[in-house]
Design a protein around this nucleic acid. Sequence first.
DNA 1: AACTGTGAAGTTTTTCACAGCC
DNA 2: GGCTGTGAAAAACTTCACAGTT
Lengths: 210, 210
Amino acid sequence: MPLKQTNSIPDIVIGRLPLYLRALTRLQQEGREVTSSHELGRKLGISSAQIRKDLSHFGGFGKQGTGYQIEYLVNKLRTVMQVNQEWHVALVGAGNLGSAILHYRGFADRGFRIAWVFDSDPAKIGAHIGGLTVQPLEELAQTIKENQAKLAMIAVPAEHAQSVANMLVEAGVQAILNYAPININVPDHVMVQYIDPVVHLQHMTFYLKD
Amino acid sequence: MPLKQTNSIPDIVIGRLPLYLRALTRLQQEGREVTSSHELGRKLGISSAQIRKDLSHFGGFGKQGTGYQIEYLVNKLRTVMQVNQEWHVALVGAGNLGSAILHYRGFADRGFRIAWVFDSDPAKIGAHIGGLTVQPLEELAQTIKENQAKLAMIAVPAEHAQSVANMLVEAGVQAILNYAPININVPDHVMVQYIDPVVHLQHMTFYLKD
DNA sequence: AACTGTGAAGTTTTTCACAGCC
DNA sequence: GGCTGTGAAAAACTTCACAGTT
């Protein structure tokens, strides 16, 4: 769960910023230079008023009568979200899922680089995957501390997710993206987000007829 | 976006049911038979009052003084979410991501089976991945119609996601899980959910110091 | 004419707190 | 004593609607 700072911008607003950035960079790729809260809203299925209100938390990024300068807004959002730099991410788990994450091309141009990968399976240690060498779990703490890594992803079986999380927290990681289908407990100062496709599918089957 | 039926249970409540089910089945695996809203809340980082209120939308599942019978509640939630049956899911895209999805063991015991996989790349068509044979995109419409598939996942590059979505909608799919990092537009009667790890990472980097 | 930024109003969601039951 | 289920209160969030700017 994200930290909740008092007197601050609602977390739900922060959660939409990456969606705005994603849509804006796509418009940019299409060669567009200006957009409006209405156009963005249509693309995202969000009301234009909400977009304007969200963005206004960070300053007046738009121009009345004209809209938003895309490149300018992209830069502002990147700065706000601190993705105008490259974050080095530690990955734990080099199985099917971990390998897929390592091969995924979508991190690089959006602020993230997987810099280390760990696994406990001796058969996997030393293997080269996606340009990285799989390190033993025993090296996790030292590697993370030495490099002051702040971000990690967990891609191990559910049974091991909590103990991996404990190691990561102990090593100083501040934010965890957990692909294991289980809730993990961490201290208040550590954030956790989850990716579980089944949760999304089950959410939708509720509404299906038949 | 999920359908919004008037006079009905809030969608935000529906979205939490899969999390409850996930935590409950884990407790079950640990051999537990009874739990309480407090225990569940602690595990999920949700208040106990919210859990009680959410569950009460579907009937009185608990016993005062005792708590909730885990097996009973699991069955009730499965029925409510309609995952007490196996849903057959179509997957579009057999690249890195598609392959990883096909190899993922986590769908089977939670109500889903990937039953078909499609790709447009002639080099991939006919290949056997995770027990399935990759079919050409040209067969998508007919296969989905014949089998009345209601669910699909998109795991193709962002540029192709919208056209794939159009094909799926045209073929009668009612719910789409989109792994491509782009918003897609579909008619109101079709639901879409998104999985984009970068969105979660960017959400968290906002809060990171340094 | 088109669009933003924003108080005010409206709606939704969460929490409180307690009666009732085991 | 411990726990659920639930109205009522509180908080959070979204939409409205319009003044102000280009």
